[in-house]
């Protein structure tokens, strides 16, 4: 089996184990963050592929869908859920900003490595900093949405 398939399997396994660590009393927050992320990634992911900015040569459901089902449907929504569940609300602004930068940078670094060494993703008209900015925007939008969803009116 190709290395790419092993990576996809590990991504599913890792994402699922992250879900297992989410405390029971934060499950509803995690669900809202997970689903809200999907609403964004499904659409934007398709637009980006349609415009030919990115390609995912090795992917699931390859014959019907040319975006990364694994990343957009499962892995990134799980990460976004984790981001919201463990968000440092009670800390200062600097720590909150650092939390954002840390998440975004780690995700971008992983993507850049995967792009360079595997056929899971290929940048066509794309740069690492576009990934960095778009992930940051997605996390921010979902975070604001979650705050609104659970806010008292």
């Amino acid at each position: 089996m190709r290395m790419e398939w092993w990576i996809l399997i590990s991504v599913f396994a890792i994402a699922t184990s992250i879900l297992a660590f989410i405390p029971k009393n934060k499950m509803r927050l995690a669900v809202v963050a997970f689903l809200a992320t999907q609403v964004i990634t499904l659409l934007i992911g398709l637009v980006v592929v349609e415009l030919g900015l990115l390609a995912y040569p090795v992917r699931l459901f390859a014959s019907v869908n040319r975006t990364s089902f694994t990343y957009e449907y499962y892995a990134f929504p799980v990460v976004c859920a984790a981001f919201n569940v463990w968000y440092p609300h009670n800390q200062g602004k600097t720590i909150q900003l650092g939390y954002y930068v840390g998440f975004v940078s780690i995700l971008t670094a992983i993507e850049v490595i995967i792009e360079k060494y595997t056929d899971l993703i290929e940048y066509i008209h794309w740069e690492w900093y576009i990934t960095w900015v778009t992930i940051g925007i997605a996390l921010f939008v979902v975070h604001q949405f979650c705050k609104w969803f659970f806010a008292k009116e």
Partner: peptide
């Protein structure tokens, strides 16, 4: 919509 990116009916599903 977005025929190159997906074969699924995006408008209907989304």
């Amino acid at each position: 919509i977005l025929p190159k990116a997906t074969n699924l009916a995006l408008t209907i599903n989304y």
